[in-house]
Amino acid sequence: MKRNTLRIAGASALAAVVFGVAAPAASAATQRSTHAPAISAAQHSEAQQAARGLLRSNDAGARALVSGLSAAQQADLQKVAKGEFVAAGKWSAIWNVLKKIGGFGKAIAGKYKDFKRWYDGLSWWQKAAIKAVSPGLTIYDIWWHFNH
């Protein structure tokens, strides 16, 4: 392997450990984990309201985003809206939502300032989708995860 590939793999492994993805994934292989990352009641409520707004919206863009999710992802979004489930720390869910929003790839590849400018320019339903799947995380946390 090339040195750069090894460095990227090492950074990815470190990020997984830092964000607590490695340990739950390892225990999930042997037993179902019911532990969710700790988030505040306010963060949980914000995610719930964002999911509800997204699911109830008549906006064509919001409808297209939700219909573009898989059945399992839509079910998770419904659970977040009901307050039964929070997708915090599920980077696959975060990734699936972000890649459906135009300009994400270019924004995430740049500096944090560029990513923040992209995020600030999103419509309400795009921000709601991100908030619904990433409670407890800041925009900087998301940018950092994909850049380090």
Rank of each mutant, 00 (worst) to 15 (best):
R3F: 08
N4A: 08
T5G: 15
G10M: 03
A11F: 10
S12Q: 14
A13T: 05
A15R: 10
A15T: 10
V18I: 14
G20R: 04
G20Y: 06
V21E: 08
V21Q: 10
A22G: 01
P24N: 04
A25H: 06
A26T: 03
S27N: 12
S27P: 01
A28V: 06
A28C: 13
A28L: 13
A29F: 15
A29L: 13
Q31R: 13
Q31D: 05
Q31T: 14
R32S: 12
S33K: 05
T34Q: 12
T34W: 13
T34R: 12
H35E: 13
H35F: 12
H35R: 14
P37H: 08
A38R: 08
I39G: 04
A42W: 09
H44D: 11
H44C: 09
H44W: 11
E46A: 13
Q48Y: 06
Q48D: 06
A50I: 04
A51S: 06
G53Q: 06
L55F: 07
L55T: 06
L55W: 09
R56H: 15
R56E: 09
D59R: 13
A60L: 10
G61H: 10
G61D: 14
A62E: 01
A64P: 07
A64F: 15
A64E: 09
L65F: 06
L65S: 04
S67P: 12
S67F: 07
G68C: 08
G68H: 06
G68D: 08
L69P: 08
S70A: 14
Q74Y: 10
A75H: 10
D76F: 02
L77I: 02
Q78Y: 07
K79Q: 14
K79V: 07
V80Q: 00
V80A: 01
A81I: 02
A81E: 01
A81W: 01
K82Q: 09
K82L: 15
K82V: 08
K82A: 15
G83I: 04
V86R: 05
V86W: 05
A87N: 05
A88G: 02
K90H: 11
K90P: 00
W91V: 09
W91C: 05
S92E: 11
S92Q: 09
S92L: 11
A93G: 03
I94A: 02
W95V: 15
N96M: 12
V97G: 00
L98P: 00
K100V: 05
K100Y: 03
K100R: 13
K100M: 15
G102H: 03
G103W: 00
F104Y: 07
G105Q: 05
A107M: 03
A107S: 04
I108W: 07
I108L: 07
A109Y: 10
G110D: 11
Y112I: 08
Y112N: 14
Y112W: 10
D114W: 03
R117N: 15
W118Q: 05
Y119W: 04
D120R: 04
W124E: 13
W124F: 09
K127A: 04
A128E: 10
A129N: 01
I130C: 00
K131Y: 12
K131P: 03
K131A: 10
K131F: 06
A132N: 02
V133I: 04
G136L: 02
T138M: 06
T138V: 05
Y140S: 11
D141S: 08
I142M: 03
I142C: 01
W143G: 00
W143S: 01
W143Y: 05
H145A: 13
H145I: 14
H145P: 03
F146V: 02
H148F: 14
H148R: 15
